[in-house]
Amino acid sequence: MAATGISSGRRRRLLRPDEIFRVVLGVAGAGVLAILATMLISTTVQAWPVLSREGWGFVTGSVWDPGTSRSEITGEYGALAFVVGTLVTSGIALAVAVPLAVAVALYITQAAPRRVAAGLTYTIELLAAVPSVVFGLWGLLFFVPTVLRPLMDVVANTLGTFVPFLGGPVVTYNYFAAGIVLSFMVMPIVMAVSREVMAGTPVTEIGAAYALGATRWEVMRHVVLPRARPGIIGATMLGLGRALGETIAVAMLIGGSQQIPSSVFRGGQSMAGIIAVTFQEAAPENVKALIGVGVLLFVITVVVNMAARLIVWATGGYVAKEQSL
């Protein structure tokens, strides 16, 4: 037994179950990297004819006039209107969701009774589990026409008369409608991460602040929030990543016009939306352009996500919770 082990040790070691096991797991691990790389490379290669022809115009041009050719690039592809649509709806979503999420996180970690806190956390995490098409359906057939439309009319007729980008006439499905519904979808992520970060505030510091006579608000403002700020920024960027990539709910609610509107109460289109809506209809050159839009979206979201995770990691936050949402 020992003798054979020594004489053929080298050959045997290659076949040891541990080695095989390690290689199998390593392939699985490397697979994740390979898939990500394959995704980026294969799509970029497909989109290249359009990207190289348009250059920066692909991002800065606002004329999207698809050609119908099967072999060459004859149309004009400037995706600016969709980039703007994605950014504006995401911006609206964050502007609504982040203050709300931070407030809820503050309440849960600093003010709520334990049982209420647990219940709230659970409820809001369930909100994250609602499929986006259900948000879209609800927004399309109920929330936007019934609840939001009257509100938008009022705003457009009052504030809209002198504040830019809030003017009428209101179109029912628009940037604002998509942004608001999107905020409901983004809020749970921002909330979950903010809560984790705030929960990490050392109890001793909070106790010390109370001992000095600080009110609850003063503790939040001078102890909890300053420590949590980088984490909240990270959470916001994670939320941004989610908002940028959301497709169906936005496509259903943004209005579907291919222009850059002069008011948030008018229709537009997002990057993900234009892909979902026109992909099946498109001629080959148009497909290449849409894949290009996908690559652009991919790059933007990946950069945002990487930055978010680096920030949260660097500040010792705990992002794992968000994965499961």
């Binding site: 004329v63 999207w64 016009s257 222009q259 509107p261 008018r266 289109q269 809506v277």
Partner: peptide
């Protein structure tokens, strides 16, 4: 598929979507 020049415009997907709009 054309560029729609009217500033105050909305798009809908398919006949269904335009009717709904």
């Amino acid at each position: 598929q054309v560029e729609w020049p009217a500033p105050n415009s909305v798009g809908g997907e398919k006949n269904d979507g335009v009717t709904a709009q």
